[in-house]
Design a protein around this nucleic acid. Structure first.
Length: 329
DNA sequence: CGGTTTTGACCCGCGC
DNA sequence: GCGCGGGTCAAAACCG
């Protein structure tokens, strides 16, 4: 299972990072974006904007620091895991190479754990062929299916499990699984059988607004369109690229989400984020220097890209508005 | 009419 | 060996 060996450094900048901030900063941020909606005299506007920019830059710095701490914590955790595994070989079999398909499935809905993939990353990394290996057909066994998992935020009322990612899919089945009342839809690439890619789409059991799309395999044909990755409600989602860091934002009414897919430090990924190079991603980020570079690149992208600032502002301001009503997230 | 979706049946691996 | 449950098949329905 490739996804367990990948470092999912996706940042759900929803609100959680803000919870890491001290109260003073929270108030500062809150006042920042509440002020955005107020009318100011034209003369003061330029100065206010500059001040606003400075504040946002400072905010980005804070986020960068948080990100750095997160990476350090991840490294620490991984080292602990490696130590533990070296002392207790085979003690984490459930998530190691011999993992059962259904056990792996149980982690599908853990949408709140952005380090879910990262914590599984380690010496016990599971190969991408594990899940594919459960398929008995020999022709599929030699296919090292790349498995990636993408979370989409949609309207809760939107019951269609349609995830428009630019590729064309043909639905070949739907099933209600035991641990999730929402049905799981099975899709094959429309270019099948020449293209072996499959996709499973199911709503998260924890948040019906979140649709989990699991991609298996790699497209062996060019991306049919340059469509943005959108949910069925295309007005609520957009995908942008921040420097080299693709970023998808979801601004549904149920709450804005910014997801940075930081698993793609270079161009060796196709448009759906899968690694199309032969290099295992965890090897890339194993090096501390590269990790540092990754952090710096992420930070650079965050601080330099105005669209990110706009998205962040929208996300945070929207979140604060939402928090006035519910304090769910 | 051809492609897609729906949906019940079937297959098969896994746990007991 | 049996039952459960996930994944797939395939015929019918649907749609442009």
């Amino acid at each position: 299972m490739e996804y367990t060996s990948l470092i999912d450094t996706s940042l759900d900048l929803n609100i959680k990072p803000l919870r890491l901030l001290d109260d003073g900063l929270k108030q500062e941020v809150q006042s920042n974006f509440i002020d955005l909606g107020t009318k100011v005299p034209v003369k003061e506007e330029a100065g206010a904007l500059v001040e606003e920019l400075n504040r946002v830059s400072a905010e980005n710095k804070k986020l960068t620091e948080i990100l750095t701490v997160l990476c350090e914590n991840y490294n620490s955790l991984r080292n602990h895991l490696m130590d533990y595994m070296s002392k207790n070989p085979g003690s984490i079999d459930n998530n190691s190479g011999g993992s059962r398909k259904r056990k792996a499935e149980s982690t599908t809905n853990n949408i709140n754990s952005i380090n879910n993939n990262a914590t599984n990353n380690g010496p016990s990394e599971t190969s991408s062929s594990d899940e594919a290996g459960s398929c008995k057909k020999p022709r599929e066994e030699h296919i090292k299916a790349k498995i990636s998992r993408v979370y989409f935020r949609t309207e809760a009322s939107d019951t269609s499990l349609i995830v428009k990612d630019g590729y064309q899919w043909r639905k070949y089945g739907q099933k209600v699984t035991r641990d999730n009342p929402s049905p799981r839809a099975y899709f094959k690439c429309s270019f099948a059988p020449s293209c072996p890619v499959k996709k499973k789409v199911q709503r998260s059991v924890e948040d019906q607004c979140v649709v989990v799309a699991t991609y298996e395999g790699e497209h062996n044909h060019p991306h049919p369109t340059k469509m943005e990755t959108t949910s069925s409600n295309s007005n609520n989602r957009c995908v942008t690229t921040l420097g080299s860091v693709p970023c998808s934002t979801s601004l549904s009414s149920s709450g804005p989400t910014i997801t940075l897919d930081l698993t793609k430090p270079n161009k060796s990924h196709d448009q759906e984020g899968r690694n199309i190079s032969g290099t295992p991603r965890n090897k890339v980020v194993d090096s501390p220097e590269l990790q540092q570079f990754l952090v710096e690149q992420m930070a650079s992208s965050l601080t330099k890209d105005p669209s990110f600032k706009a998205a962040l502002a929208a996300a945070i301001s929207g979140k604060f508005l939402q928090h006035n009503q519910t304090d769910k997230w």
